[in-house]
């Protein structure tokens, strides 16, 4: 199955997976921290927001405002979760990557 709408940018793919990992607890700072923890990459908070916004426009994630707390100066969080389309996209990406990986001759990868 080849579907164009599953096309994702590299950072988009990463953020989408992180959101999936975090399960309903994903919001800007958290996603940023998780990227740093999981793969040690520093991303600016504004970039994370932009990517999340873009994913939402593409319908891969959905969002809702969380409850207010005294932290964050009383500001509410916008929480993200993966939609059905998002799950399919992750599966699709994973599958295509695996297929491609399998087609690479073993010698190129440097181990027998």
């Amino acid at each position: 199955m080849k579907n164009k709408s599953y096309q994702l940018g590299e950072l988009e793919e990463l953020v989408l997976m992180i959101v999936a990992i975090l399960q309903e607890n994903a919001y800007g700072v958290k996603v940023m921290d998780e990227i740093l923890d999981q793969i040690g990459r520093k991303v600016n908070i504004s970039a994370v927001h932009t990517v999340l916004d873009r994913l939402e426009k593409k319908d891969f994630v959905s969002s809702y405002m969380g409850g207010a707390s005294s932290e964050r100066g009383g500001r509410r969080k916008r929480l993200f979760k993966v939609t059905a389309t998002g799950s399919k996209a992750i599966a699709y990406v994973h599958q295509t990557r695996n297929e491609l990986y399998d087609k690479i001759p073993k010698t190129v990868l440097g181990f027998q």
Partner: peptide
């Protein structure tokens, strides 16, 4: 529309 979440994240990082 975006102001609250951005402010919130920025403040969290600040604190």
């Amino acid at each position: 529309r975006y102001l609250e979440q951005i402010e919130g994240d920025l403040l969290e990082l600040f604190d």
